[in-house]
Structures are given as structure tokens and as C-alpha cells.
């Protein structure tokens, strides 16, 4: 029990510490740690969490830390009270590195942000963050989220259609993400 809390704390501390590139890049880290590494929840549950984080206000990093902290404790068989403590620990842990770093950086970064060593480090970081995002999307393109042609062809093809609709809606027409989610949810309700 305490071990689980320690693991949650350490996991989210790491995510907060290495989470460069904003919420979506952080999602790929949370997924790698929580689903692939620790097996605290399934890929499908994780996708649900991302959906909920996207359709509620607030930073996605905080939203998903809160939700994952709760769910992983409850999935391990403990009551919702312990789950609440888990979400508190995860949220605190994900903010803590920022707090420490930003306080230090508030003093020093202004002075050194144009220093070549800092610039070069970021030159390597920025393209890698893009790869991180791509990996998150690729990892979620699985049978749990889309079904499969051999398993449930109807759901599979509708899912691919919904994916394309949401992708184009977001990329080309810059539609509101919450609206896209609601539209796809309603389609699911009607078609599945």
C-alpha cells in the first residue's frame, strides 16, 4: 500500500521533471509509465482519462495526474478514500519539480537563456518532443481503442472514420476539441 503510494509519487515526480513540451508530450510519458511500465490500468482506461481531461477545464497534466492517481489505487483494490489520497499524491508530485525548478530558474534563466550550451540542449530537445507526441498517438492506435477488422469490422471502420473526421477537423478546420469529442461520442452512441 505505502509502496504503491511511493511508486505513484516517484512516477509523477519523474513525469513532472522530464515533461517537456506541454500537456500532450506529458501524456505520452504518463502512458509509458502507467500503462506499459507499471500496468496500473489498461490502454482503454487510459484513453478514457485523456478524453475526460480534454473535456474538463484545467491543465491536462494536472487532470490526468489526479485521475490516474485515483484510478491506479482503486484498480489495486483499495477504497475510494485511499484513491483520493492517491490522486492528491500524484498531483502534488507532478507539480513539485516545476515548483523547485521554476523557483531556481526564475533567478538564473533570464541571464543564461541565450547561452550557447542552453541553446544547444534545446536544439536537441525540441525535435525529440515531437517524436514523443507521435509515439503517444501511435501507441493508442490499437484494437482496444479502434477494435479490429477481424474482431468487429463495423466498429473498426466507424472508428477509423471518426479518427479521420476528428483529425481533419482539428488540423484543417481548427474545430473546438470539446465539440469534436462530443460529436464523436454521439456518433458512437448512435452507431455502435
Amino acid at each position: 500500500m505505502i509502496l504503491l503510494y511511493l511508486k505513484i509519487f516517484w512516477t509523477f515526480f519523474k513525469i513532472g521533471l522530464f515533461g517537456f513540451g506541454g500537456g500532450y508530450a506529458m501524456i505520452s510519458m504518463i502512458q509509458a509509465e502507467v500503462v506499459s511500465n507499471h500496468g496500473w490500468m489498461t490502454n482503454g482506461e487510459f484513453t478514457d482519462i485523456v478524453a475526460i481531461s480534454q473535456s474538463t477545464p484545467g491543465p491536462i497534466g494536472i487532470n490526468s495526474a489526479t485521475y490516474v492517481g485515483y484510478t491506479s489505487v482503486v484498480n489495486a483494490g483499495y477504497s475510494s478514500l485511499w484513491g483520493t489520497l492517491g490522486s492528491l499524491i500524484a498531483t502534488f508530485a507532478v507539480v513539485l519539480p516545476s515548483l523547485i525548478l521554476m523557483l531556481a530558474i526564475s533567478r538564473f534563466f533570464m541571464k543564461y537563456k541565450n547561452h550557447p550550451a542552453v541553446e544547444h540542449t534545446f536544439m536537441g530537445l525540441r525535435p525529440a518532443v515531437v517524436g514523443l507526441l507521435a509515439a503517444a498517438a501511435l501507441l493508442l492506435m490499437n484494437a482496444e481503442n479502434f477494435s479490429a477488422p477481424g474482431e468487429n469490422p463495423w466498429q473498426f471502420f466507424i472508428s477509423v472514420g471518426l479518427f479521420l473526421f476528428a483529425f481533419i477537423g482539428q488540423m484543417v478546420y481548427k474545430m473546438n476539441p470539446v465539440l469534436l469529442l462530443v460529436l464523436c461520442g454521439i456518433s458512437g452512441l448512435l452507431l455502435f
Binding site: 503517444a136 472508428s159 469529442l181 464523436c184 461520442g185 456518433s187 458512437g188
Partner: peptide
Amino acid sequence: RFFRGLRPAVVALI
């Protein structure tokens, strides 16, 4: 059913 429709959209948004 609602969430099965949502999931592909979430992947697209990522």
C-alpha cells in the same frame, strides 16, 4: 457506446 466513439477522436486529437 459514447466512449467507444470518443476513443478514436482522442487519438486524433493527440
